[in-house]
């Protein structure tokens, strides 16, 4: 038993697993699924190696700073594992003046994530994005409002380095934004609907300002595009803004309609009902993150580095550098 423990605690094994970890990192780097079994296996082996060293190596146990460093590393590994089981990552787009209601463009979550993003409601009150000549984005100021737990209306300006934190969900507003075509849909039977068609991010997709979607009761999809000649992101610098003169092109099958950029200028009769163009707005993209392990990870990391510095200080302070 003791022999097996000593073998597991071997420093040679540590080195071997370090190399295995390096290879696992390369695999994670080239793989879309980052939490690869190889990474989990190599980190688990390191954890076992460390626990065996603590159990069997008295000399190791006597070096308190070095022990603290390694235990903090172990805590980091466990916290990362817990983080991967409970994390949430998503991308949301909210139209200017509209409320975030828990709808995401895409999401990724650990199996133990307690879904609660819908509770993190807030309203996008508008965005100011300033560009330098180039254009080079200088910063994003996104105005948001929400009703807090006490029923009080709160307002904030979020942007780069300054997320909105609601129910531990962190909403980051930075470069991702675009235009939204607002439409009303009056079906032949049933209640009218209001909605937006969020065009691809601008200016990242400046030449692809079009999107296809489906209306309830219409078998054939609708395609809409926004055409304009001015520069919503001025090359000479300035603020991101809606185009002043634009045309909205709508197509279904072989039929095509051109709407002269003014709300209410065109109602389109379709087989299932009437589509009304209501105007142009912007949407703001939010990177959403939830990970409750973060403060603990920071504490464990700082403990690790302080313990490491303490260990080396003890080790080297006995003999002068110039000795």
């Amino acid at each position: 038993m003791l022999r097996a423990g000593s073998a597991l605690a071997s420093l040679r094994l540590t080195l071997g697993v370090f190399i295995f970890l390096g290879l696992s990192i390369m695999l994670a780097y080239f793989n879309e699924v980052r939490t690869s079994p190889w990474l989990v296996l190599s980190l688990s082996m390191l954890a076992i190696n460390l626990l065996a060293a603590i159990a069997t190596n008295q000399h190791f146990r006597r070096q308190l700073p070095l022990m603290c460093f390694h235990l903090a590393l172990l805590a980091i590994v466990l916290l990362i594992a817990l983080g991967r089981l409970t994390y949430f990552k998503g991308r949301a787009e909210v139209v200017d003046g509209e409320e975030f209601t828990g709808q995401f463009v895409d999401t990724e979550a650990g199996p133990w994530h307690p879904l609660g993003a819908a509770e993190a409601r807030f309203t996008n009150l508008g965005t100011r994005i300033v560009y330098a000549p180039g254009p080079v984005r200088l910063g994003t100021e996104n105005h948001v409002a929400w009703v807090d737990e006490n029923g009080v209306l709160q307002r904030a300006v979020i942007g780069d380095h300054n997320p909105l934190i609601r129910h531990h969900y962190r909403f980051y507003a930075n470069w991702n934004k675009g235009f939204a075509l607002m439409f009303g849909w009056q079906p032949k039977q049933g209640a009218p609907l209001l909605g937006s068609v969020n065009l691809p991010s601008y200016p990242a997709n400046a030449l692809q300002q079009a999107r296809q979607w489906s209306l309830p009761g219409n078998a054939e999809p609708i395609w809409a595009a926004l055409h304009f000649d001015d520069q919503p992101v001025p090359e000479a610098g300035g603020e991101f803004h809606l185009p002043e003169h634009y045309t909205v092109v709508v197509r279904q099958g072989s039929q095509r309609w051109e709407l002269a950029g003014e709300p209410g200028t065109g109602d389109i009769e379709l087989p299932g009902g009437r589509l009304s163009y209501l105007g142009l707005r912007t949407w703001m993209g939010y990177q959403v993150a939830w990970d409750r392990t973060m403060p603990w990870l920071l504490a464990a990391s700082l403990t690790a580095v302080l313990a490491l510095a303490w260990h080396f200080w003890q080790k080297f302070s006995g003999r002068s550098w110039n000795a």
Binding site: D160, R170, N174, Q287, V288, A289, M294
Partner: peptide, 8 residues
């Protein structure tokens, strides 16, 4: 990175 891109 957490501040800038929402992931550490």
């Amino acid at each position: 990175a957490q501040d800038a891109w929402g992931r550490y």
